[in-house]
Design a protein around this nucleic acid. Structure first.
Length: 437
RNA sequence: GGAGGGGUGGCAGAGUGGUUGAAUGCGGCGGUCUUGAAAACCGCUGUCCGACUUGUCGGACCGGGGGUUCGAAUCCCUCCCCCUCCGCCA
């Protein structure tokens, strides 16, 4: 959520920044409504102030009428005056009631509008509308093709480690079953990644996989992505589309004490997405599925450190690719490609030489104070200091099924077997190759 | 799922429907005293919103929402959460 104050201060700057996203935002309605809201608020508050003063006086008079020490005559006088004030207060109350209900309506509408506005792109984000405008900032390894490599769906089936038919039998399309060494490989990757990031200073977190609807609003996933998430029909449970939601909300409605920032978290969770928006795309293989696992990195940092921390976050995700020996590239997203919460993002893609495409395995973003404001997360620099909103950053480190794809396709041997990356072997119980069947 | 108990400031804990943003204690910050520290004493010590002379004024907040009333932390309804006991269960 943007600060209303920043829109008031410089509406044109906000308008121009949002225009770079190429989406419609109800900014004019917000500005107009805010003006009406403030003038109504002033009326309401001055009337409340008047009523409070009357109440105080009524209270004093009421006490006089029952006080034995007060003369009969004066009690009578006080009672009259009290009745008079009560009548005035009642009249005031009626006027207030209608103003207050107007005010409430405006507040609800204003909030509703404000929640639809995405974050402002950082000035350093390149212009552009689509994927083709993203800027590759560095690449390690080649986008190689050598003819004989199988795509993971074929390779996985031949090795007996990915079972699409049974996945579909259990749950339908876009579900899969991993077996034997495949299941083991994914588990090994998860465990290795958690250890990897923990050693680099992230604290491991195991959050719930279902959260309240409120968390989706606070995390910036509602209202925009309602179509893409699963939720319980009877109870207020929403399945995580990413651990990011849980991690954002870890500190919602909190004021963090001095010296608690920065906070670096790493969480492994399953993630659930409807993929309604992408219906028909990537239906083969395990690239785009309804349930997948992900190791997520998340940071809460003081605003002045977010740029530096974003670079480090990207570096940490890249380090995973490097350690696994996967060809990868990093690109800075253009303004039109930024997610709703993000002010700046880098995507990390690994090369999959079997299906011959770049796979997005991580998207690292700075959400500036946007999520923190939505979720009411604040911190103090010193004891008793003014609370401020921290910046929040998130990124995958990495998304699993796609990493599994990349490992299988990059490490397959001409004889049909698949080697296990060096760093993963200790987690595979000594297995260093999946033999061809 | 059944029965009962409870949600008040950073914590503990008061609070007959009317000068209660809220007693008191602890903690924290500042000061006096002291060579220094402790003790003692004194003062300060929440969050959000609005207005403008930017320092002050006003408003809101006692789990959430609604109601009664001239006026609600206090009364009523409803929801949520926590605790205890019983049942069930990985």
């Amino acid at each position: 959520m943007l600060a209303l104050q920043s829109i008031r201060d410089d509406p044109d700057a906000v308008r121009q920044a949002l225009a770079r996203r190429h989406t419609d935002v109800p900014l004019d309605e917000i500005i107009a409504l805010d003006g009406r809201w403030r003038s109504t608020l002033q009326q309401v508050e001055s009337q409340r102030s008047e009523r409070n003063a009357l109440s105080k006086e009524i209270g004093g008079l009421a006490r006089m009428t029952t006080d034995e020490r007060v003369a009969r005559r004066e009690q009578k006088h006080a009672a009259h005056r009290r009745d008079d004030l009560v009548a005035r207060s009642a009249f005031l109350g009626e006027k207030l009631e209608s103003l207050e209900s107007q005010l409430k309506e405006m507040e609800a509408r204003l909030r509703d509008l404000l929640l639809q506005v995405p974050n402002l792109p950082d000035p350093d984000v390149p212009d552009g509308e689509g994927e083709e405008d993203n800027v590759v900032v560095r690449q390690a390894g080649e986008e190689y093709r050598d003819g004989w490599r199988l795509a993971h769906w074929e390779l996985g089936e031949r090795l007996g480690i990915i079972d699409f038919e049974r996945g579909a039998k259990l749950s339908g399309s876009r579900f899969f079953v991993l077996k034997g060494a495949g299941a083991r490989l994914q588990r090994a990757l998860i465990q290795w990644m958690l250890d990897f990031h923990t050693e680099r200073g992230y604290q491991e977190v195991y959050p719930p996989a279902m959260v309240k609807e409120e968390c989706m609003w606070k995390g910036g996933w509602l209202p925009k992505f309602a179509e893409n998430m699963y939720h319980d029909a009877e109870e207020d449970y929403w399945w995580l589309p990413t651990a990011e939601v849980a991690l954002t909300n870890l500190h919602s409605d909190e004021i963090l004490e001095p010296d608690t920032l920065p906070l670096h978290y790493v969480a492994y969770t399953p993630c659930f997405r409807r993929e309604k928006v992408s219906a028909g795309r990537d239906v083969r293989g395990i690239k785009r599925v309804h349930q997948f696992d992900k190791v997520e990195l998340y940071k809460f940092v003081p605003p002045e450190r977010s740029a530096e921390e974003l670079d480090k976050l990207v570096a940490d995700a890249e380090a995973v690719c490097r350690a696994l020996g996967l060809p990868h590239r990093v690109s800075r997203l253009c303004a039109g490609e930024l997610g709703f919460n993000a002010a700046m993002s880098y995507d990390i893609e690994v090369w999959a030489p079997g299906c011959e495409e770049w796979l997005e395995v991580s998207s690292c973003s700075s959400c500036t104070d946007f999520q923190a404001r939505r979720a009411a997360i604040r911190f103090r620099r010193q004891k008793g200091g003014r609370p401020e909103h921290p910046h929040t950053l998130n990124g995958s480190g990495l998304a699993l099924p796609r990493t599994v794809i990349a490992v299988l396709e990059n490490y397959q041997q001409p004889d049909g077997s698949v080697a296990v990356p060096e760093v993963i072997r200790p987690y595979m119980g000594g297995v260093d190759v999946f033999p061809s069947q």
